[in-house]
Amino acid sequence: MNIYIANLSFDVHDDDLRNIFAPYGEVTSAKVITDKATGRSRGFGFVEMADEAASTKAIAELNGTTVENRTIGVTVAKPKGDRPSRDFNSGKSYNENRY
């Protein structure tokens, strides 16, 4: 199961995420999402776990807990097709809408 983790401290790295979820079961991947230009954390990440029961337990027990002085949100990750689209190239500039 793919798990989404929100509100991560900028000091949390991939290995930290793996260590947070490891007590609940096998972590197949752990990734903190970073800004391509700066390499700095964007404050969220994804963890993939092999066992669905372990994933469900981790979500239930870790959601709302504090990591690095920040309360994290832990939920099931939505597939890309289920997310709302963000059209940054709508053809209208900020100034056109303003005047």
Rank of each mutant, 00 (worst) to 15 (best):
R40M: 09
S85T: 14
G43M: 02
T28C: 01
N69L: 09
K31T: 14
S41P: 09
M1N: 06
M1H: 04
S85G: 06
A50W: 13
N95P: 00
P84Q: 01
T65F: 09
T75W: 07
P23R: 11
D87R: 15
R40F: 04
I59E: 12
Y4H: 11
G43W: 06
K31Y: 04
V12E: 02
R70E: 02
A53G: 00
I3C: 11
R98C: 03
A77N: 06
T71I: 14
K31N: 14
N19Y: 02
A50N: 06
E48F: 01
K80E: 14
E26H: 11
K36M: 10
T75F: 12
F88Y: 15
S41R: 02
D15M: 12
D35F: 02
I59G: 00
S85L: 10
T66V: 15
V47E: 09
T56M: 12
S29C: 05
V32T: 10
I72F: 06
T66R: 09
S90R: 14
V12D: 05
T38I: 10
I33T: 13
M1I: 11
D51A: 06
K36I: 09
I33R: 03
R42I: 07
N2S: 11
N63G: 01
T65H: 07
F46W: 01
T66L: 05
R70G: 10
D82N: 05
V67H: 13
V76Y: 11
S29E: 01
D16N: 14
E61T: 06
F44S: 07
H13A: 12
R42M: 13
G45R: 01
D35S: 09
T28Y: 12
S9E: 02
R18M: 09
R40Q: 13
R70M: 06
G73D: 03
G43Q: 08
V76C: 03
N2G: 04
G25C: 06
S41F: 03
R86C: 06
T75E: 13
N97F: 09
V32S: 08
G43P: 03
E52I: 06
G73W: 08
G64N: 06
I72L: 05
N7M: 05
T28K: 15
S55I: 03
S93R: 12
F21G: 04
S9Y: 04
A54P: 04
E68R: 10
I33Q: 06
G73F: 08
A22P: 03
A50Y: 10
D16R: 10
A6P: 01
A22F: 09
T34G: 01
A60D: 15
L62N: 12
Y4W: 14
T66A: 10
A37E: 11
V47L: 04
I72C: 05
V74T: 07
I59M: 11
H13N: 14
S29R: 15
P84K: 08
K92V: 15
V47H: 06
P23L: 12
Y4D: 05
D82R: 00
T34I: 12
S93W: 00
R18Q: 10
L8A: 08
F88R: 15
S90F: 00
K80G: 01
T56R: 10
R98Y: 11
N95W: 08
V76P: 00
K92P: 00
P23Y: 13
R86A: 05
Y99I: 03
T56C: 03
M49L: 11
E26D: 01
D82L: 09
R40S: 08
